[in-house]
Every structure is written in C-alpha cells, then in structure tokens.
Amino acid sequence: MFRFRQADLTRFVSLRRRITAALLCGMVLLLGACQPHVHGALYRIAGLMPSLAFRMTSDRGQSVTARTYRNKVVLLYFGYTHCTDACPTTLARLSRAVRLLGREAGDVRILFVTVDPARDTLSVLRRYVAAFGPEVVGLRGSPASLETLARRYRVVYEPGRSKGELAHSSGVFMFDARGKAQWLAPLDTPAQAIAQAARGLLARRG
C-alpha cells in the first residue's frame, strides 16, 4: 500500500543530516561539561541551598540556633559518636583545617550534628568533640528538629536504630558569616582546601 516517493526520500536525507548534527552537539555538550563546578575539591553551592537554620542543644547544654553562630564561618557535618571510620577522620581533618587558619581559627565553628541522639547524650557528645579541639561543637536535637535540619540540606540519616552502623551523609556544608550556604566538601577533601575556602569566606566578611 505504501510507496516511498522521491519527496519522502529527499526529506529523509536532509533529516539525517540534521539528526547527525543534533547528536554530535549532544555528545560535545556531555563531554564538555563532564565535571561539576569545583574549586579545589569543593563544590560551590551558593544559591542552591537554603541559609543555615536550626534549633538544637549544644554539648554544653545550651539551647542554640543558627543565630548563635552569626559572624562565624560554620562547617556543618552530620555523624554520630559510635561511627568508626568516616566521622572521626572527617572531624580530625576539619579541626586541622581550622588550626591552619592561625589567629582566625576562633571565627570558625565546626558543628557536629548527631544523627543518633538516643545514644549520643550531651555528656557523651561533649567528651567526644572535646578530643578534636575547642572549635568543634556537638549538637543534639529532638527527632523533629533533626529531621527538619536533615531535610533542609537533603541529607540522609537512619533514625531509631540502637545498634550497629548508621547510614549518613558524608558531605561537609560550609556557611559564610551571614549563614549563607557556600561550599560542599566531599569526604576526602584535604585540610588545606577546606582552610583555603574558609579563609575566602572570612575575608569576605568585611
């Protein structure tokens, strides 16, 4: 019933040329933009994620909010004290980065939010963070406030399990002195790169 006519054939040929061009463009686009926007090893997240906001209890027993840490550069990290590898190494690396800042170290806070508030009581948390340095603050919140904060930064944690390893995020969120999200550092970011990013945020504070 159906017969190809000359017109169909020419249409098909010109079409093929257009298709080839489109496919090539697609491949170039894909290969050209293969890596996310990276600064050293950190990802820029300014404008992508909301400003810092939470209500929790610090390891010293004080009720704190994001306001408490205004005018400080904040490094936000989720973990728990029974965590065997990622949490202690990350916290150690973060506090080393802060110490690299020298005099300005006092203007930086590392907020360690526990995703295991059942086991991490304030005293357990205090003893744990004290091992890493004075700039590390342990934060413990009600299940509701922990969930709010985790959802705000699209972070996964496993609530309510009392034993074993808990899944949690590995990124460190960096906020400037006004509480605006600026950088997201992967697990293996060198302390130097974090210190450099923090220095940049401190310099812009004015």
Binding site: A22, G26, L30, C34, L48, R154, L184
Partner: peptide, 22 residues
C-alpha cells in the same frame, strides 16, 4: 530532539548535581 535533549541536559553531571540540591 526535545525528548532526548532533555534527558541529556539533566544528566550532565554539573547540571545533575545542582538539580539534586536545589
């Protein structure tokens, strides 16, 4: 082209990264 282009666009790693955070 739109159908496939949209798939390619959101799967460019840099674009995908921002889409999953924002």
């Amino acid at each position: 082209v739109l159908f496939v282009g949209l798939l390619y666009f959101w799967l460019i790693p840099a674009i995908h990264f921002t889409a999953m955070l924002d």
